[in-house]
Amino acid sequence: MKNRVPRALRRATTLLAVAATAVLSACGESVTEPTVDGLVIADIVLETADGEIIYSHIDHWHGFAIVDRGSALDVTVHFVPRSTHPDDHDVASRDQWFTLRDHPEYGLDVVIEDPALATWAGDRVSGRLTGSQSGTTRTSFVVRRGGTTIFEAPPLNTVVR
């Protein structure tokens, strides 16, 4: 009996070491991020015809859309694959921007909360925001592939003055 316990302990230790090694090796490989086949979009950058930049950053926007009543704002819609650090509020460098021009399987839905104030007309690359009536509303930008939502920006405050 006196000899059995240490021997059993040795075996148990060996078994544990093997099990731990196997499990930890497997864990190391498998931080289970779902793999998505296709575009990865983290943020959106709106570039107006006169060079103004309005961009989302994780859960908020830097800037907002302003359009005069009866006027239009032409906008090119860019995306970036990765957000900058939460405390880094600069826009992503332009070499990271891309549009959906070369991705016909993706669609861009732009929805204005109060369509009486402003309207959006465009395609997956660019669009025109037209102010109809003074006031404030919010605009959603959603990228879809088929019926799947790939990206949704936080609502953009939109002002018609």
Partner: peptide, 30 residues
């Protein structure tokens, strides 16, 4: 960076908080 400080309007279309590295800017629209 795990804490996000935000100011929000009761009416979300009435204004917006733009967080910056230090503090932020508060815009009102109505």
């Amino acid at each position: 960076s795990d804490l996000q400080v935000r100011l929000e309007f009761e009416d979300p279309s009435a204004g917006v908080w733009e967080p910056l590295s230090r503090g932020g800017r508060l815009f009102a629209f109505a």
